[in-house]
Amino acid sequence: MKSDLDRETLEERIRRELADGIDEELELELGDEMLARMSEPGRPSSPQDGIDRKLYFTELLRLQRELIKLQSWVVDQKLKLVVLFEGRDAAGKGGVIKRVAQRLNPRICRTVALSAPSERERTQWYFQRYVTHLPAAGEIVLFDRSWYNRAGVERVMGFCSESDVQDFFQTVPEFERMLVRSGIILLKYWFSITDEEQNLRFLMRIHDPMKQWKLSPMDLESRRRWEEYTKAKEEMLARTHIPEARWWVVEGNNKRRARLNCIHHLLQQVPYKDVEQQPIVLPKREHKPDYARTPVAPELYVPAVY
C-alpha cells in the first residue's frame, strides 16, 4: 500500500516538473488577455501543490509589474541593488533569477554568472573578480552564485585550502559591511531543497535531452557529496549572517511557491514608490517626396521554408 502511494506521489511530482517546463515557455507571452483565456470554459486550471495554475500566473505577472516599478525607483533614486542567489544545484536559483529579470531592462538589471576563475584570476584578491560586476548608481545586479563559492563548492571540492576558507570567513563580513557603507543594498538568498527533491530533479535532467546541458560533472559529484555540502552550508550561514547583510532562506521544493515567495520578499526589502513617467507620444512619420526605397536583392532573403 505504501509503495503504491509513494509511486503515485512520485508520478505527480514528475507531472508537476514537466508541466512547469511547458508553462515556462508561456511566461514570456503572459499578459492579461492570456490570463483571461485560462478561465474560459473547457480550459481547466489544475492546482499544483495548492498553487492553482491561473493563480500562479496572475501573481507572477502582478509581481513582475511591481518589479518594473522597483526598477524605475532604482533608476530615479540612483540606487545600487545587489541580490545574491545561492543554493544547491537544481535548487531553483536560475528559475527565480529568470522571472526577476524577465521583463526588466537588461541595461538596468543584469545577471552575473561567473565561470571558474582563470589562472590570472586565481592570483588576484579573491573578491576582485566579483567587484568588477558591482552596480553603478541606477543599476540592479543579480548574482547567480557569488563570492560564497569559496564557502561551498570550492571548499567541498577541494579547490581551495582550509586556510583559504577561514580567511574568507574572516574577510567576508567586513567586505559586505564595506559594500553596504558604500550605498549598496545587499540581499542574500539561500534556496533550500531536500535530498529527495534534488535527486528527482537530477533524474529529470538526465532523461530530458533539452535539459542535459544543465548537468555538469561537478553537479554529479556534488550529488555524491550531499552531506559535505550540508555541513559547509550550515557553517556558512552561521558565520556570515550579519545584521548589515543577513541571509534569507527560501523553501525551494515547490518551484512555483519559491519563485513567488522570493520575488514578493525581494520587493518588500526596498521601499520603492511609483515614479511619474512622461507620457509617450509617437512622432509622426516624415514623408519626403524624393525618397525611393532601394529594392532588396532576392538572394539576401532567408529562404521561406515555413
Rank of each mutant, 00 (worst) to 15 (best):
C262E: 08
W73A: 08
A101R: 05
C262W: 01
M210P: 01
T294A: 01
L220H: 04
R103K: 10
E25K: 11
K69L: 15
R177K: 06
S216R: 13
E40S: 05
T230S: 07
L5G: 05
R53K: 15
W247T: 12
D4H: 10
D144H: 03
L237S: 00
A137L: 05
E227W: 04
E59T: 07
V302D: 06
H207G: 04
D89E: 11
L220E: 04
S115A: 11
E24D: 07
V74Q: 02
E176S: 09
I185C: 14
R285M: 12
M210S: 07
C160V: 14
E228C: 07
D208S: 06
S45C: 15
A245G: 03
I280R: 09
V172H: 01
K288R: 10
I193Y: 02
L61C: 13
I184K: 00
W190A: 04
A91K: 02
L10S: 13
G42I: 01
S72Y: 04
A238F: 08
A91T: 02
D290W: 13
K284S: 14
Q64I: 13
K98I: 08
A238V: 11
L30P: 11
D208I: 00
K231R: 10
S146V: 06
E176A: 11
F168M: 09
E27S: 02
E174S: 08
V296N: 00
V74L: 06
V141N: 07
P295I: 05
Y272C: 05
E221D: 14
K255D: 14
Q268P: 01
S72Q: 07
D290R: 06
E174M: 05
W73S: 06
Y56G: 06
K98W: 08
V302F: 03
D52F: 09
E197R: 10
P243I: 05
P289Q: 08
L18N: 05
G31P: 03
E139G: 00
F191H: 14
C160P: 08
R201N: 12
Q277M: 09
G31T: 10
E221F: 03
Y130H: 09
T240W: 11
A258N: 10
F191K: 10
S192P: 00
S72N: 11
E139H: 02
V302H: 05
P209L: 06
S45M: 12
G158Y: 05
N199I: 00
L10M: 12
V131T: 15
D20N: 14
F191R: 12
